[in-house]
Design a protein around this nucleic acid. Structure first.
Lengths: 159, 159
DNA sequence: TAAAATACTTCCTTGCTCGAACTATTGGGT
DNA sequence: ACCCAATAGTTCGAGCAAGGAAGTATTTTA
């Protein structure tokens, strides 16, 4: 009981920090949150189609179109129609885009290391475990159907 | 080393969840993130002036004006000029606003309890400790000056 | 009493978000 | 072959948010 009250107080006290995590981390002054996510997705998958981006970001295609448009206009992404199926639009990084993503990753890594240094090995493990537990539980409640959660940590090669 | 790589992967994998925490929690369909925060601030302080809201939310006054305007238009807040210093505008909850905040708190509490149930006492304590440690460290780096951090858990009476 | 500081608001631009409507292309069924 | 449905996107319109710049009162101070 006492534990629960404390956790609620804690959430209310830190709601601002929780709701605006991008302010912990000045990720990049050039791009917005959504734009950074989109760039990282394109980077990770090499070449992506609009629907995939919308899927990964969990946003409607109409929103994705806007985000990608701005990145194309800034010269970070390339948009081109697929010739074998002309409904499909595929997205790639330009060279400027690749350079930008590299910089973003460095920045993220710096922050991660900064946090990492604050934690004991035990805390680090528990943090990840708890985070995954919470995310999985909340996802499970949202859509108690369809496919496997598949929310465990995936290994991604960095550099 | 292995720990750090894992933590970086972890962050990259869950960047969407981290950057859009409002999607974990369908806080309220009626209000936006900023609007909810503004309502909670007014609720907690009883009567607040615009500058205080801007301060707490860490946004410029021009942004605060817009957020409060929409809440006033929806009938949740009351805006009135201070008679002793007519530059000042103070904000209060209307009855509808009080009812809404009560509902928001119930919703938050439900989510907090849902998370709480997933955690052991040890995890709960560590989670709060780590969270505060990280927030304090990042704040300290941002502004290595001025006043005390004052980021420890404050107790707030609920209901 | 004039000038500076304070407390806001207004205006403008950019971005995100979403639904609805629309275009283009492809695939299936008969 | 032809029509219809499904698929893949874009466009449009409206609301919300962010923030800088400029403007309006009002109060303080020098």
């Amino acid at each position: 009981m006492a534990g629960e009250i404390k956790l609620l107080d804690f959430f209310l006290d830190h709601l601002k920090e929780i709701l605006y995590p991008e302010e912990w981390i000045d990720l990049d002054l050039e791009l917005s949150k959504s734009q950074i996510l989109a760039m990282l997705i394109v980077d990770r998958h090499g070449e992506v189609i609009m629907s995939e981006i919308a899927d990964y970001l969990n946003i409607p295609l109409s929103t994705a179109t806007g985000i990608i448009n701005r990145l194309v206009n800034k010269g970070y992404l390339l948009r081109e129609r697929n010739e074998s199926d002309r409904r499909i639009v595929s997205i790639q990084l330009t060279e400027a885009g690749q350079a930008l993503v590299a910089g973003i990753k460095v920045t993220i890594n710096e922050y991660v290391e900064r946090i990492d240094r604050l934690l004991t090995e035990e805390e680090r493990e528990m943090l990840m475990r708890v985070f995954i537990k919470v995310i999985e539980a909340l996802n499970r409640e949202k859509e108690p159907d369809i496919k496997q959660p598949e929310t465990s940590v995936k290994k991604i090669e960095i550099e």
